[in-house]
Design a binder for these strands. Structure first.
Lengths: 142, 142
DNA sequence: CGGCATCCAGGGAGATACTG
DNA sequence: CAGTATCTCCCTGGATGCCG
């Protein structure tokens, strides 16, 4: 088991592992930071977006997110399952069949995630333009 | 300059570097994935959230996000600047003063990012509970 | 098919020292 | 103050192989 470990902090949140308390805008503690890190994760985002209103199997997810390794997909799914955002259903058939779906909690996240994806789609051209501007300016300086 | 390089793809998006075209729900190309990776970044998210409606200096940001290294903060700010999400203003005074603020484009992202943060705040207890459940179940199995 | 175990490379990220 | 420049370490994540 060299898989990345959840920090498995005991319920009743504390920050014993942290050298000094986080500040984050003076309002948040490390809990929020931790959760944010997880859901704002590169792969988590895609998984959540893909599971909107439907159930997908492991292989289907892997195919759709093409580029993800089975290791990272497994890891990501486990994290999301642990956080209660997705539900994992094992069908005792052979060959094995495992379905993944959003939980009610995960569904509430979806609209937010979708907003992020939509924003990206809408603004990708503007961002590309900004990058071009920035890069050409940098190049001319060099 | 060993700082992480933007992949500096020419404007007019393509995916020559990728061995095979991404699928991502069959609709998206690598551009969106790339941008999503950047804005959904651990630190980017915090920076954007902190810059809502105000201007902050480098050190102020560093203090508020406490836990980030100057290296990562610099890198993050440069990326966001390149993407046209934040604006960097250098005041020619001594000692130097550099202000960071959201651009109009960055401001449009803010509401989305804030939604993510708010969601996390609202649901952190539920997530903590889910983790406790998951972990205790895992422990009892072992 | 779904996933865990192992091995291993690359780069993300920290610590430190130095400049304008 | 606001960075850059190194050097280094470790974790992320890929490749492969095996099992239920």
């Amino acid at each position: 088991m060299d898989m990345e470990e959840g920090t498995s902090d005991s319920p009743g949140h504390r920050c014993d592992t942290d050298p000094d308390p986080w500040q984050w805008d003076r309002r948040e503690d490390c809990e929020v930071r931790q959760i944010l890190d997880r859901i704002a994760d590169k792969w988590s985002l895609l998984v959540i977006a893909l599971l909107q209103g439907r159930t997908l199997r492991f292989t289907e997810l892997k195919r759709q997110i093409d580029g993800i390794s089975q290791r990272m997909l497994t890891s990501t799914l486990r994290q999301l399952e642990r956080d209660g955002l997705i539900e994992r259903t094992v069908h005792p058939v052979v060959p094995p069949r495992v379905d993944y779906a959003l939980t009610p909690l995960g569904s509430t996240l979806h609209s937010t995630v979708q907003a992020l994806v939509t924003w990206t789609e809408l603004n990708q051209n503007e961002i590309a333009a900004a990058r071009a501007r920035y890069d050409s300016a940098a190049t001319s300086r060099a």
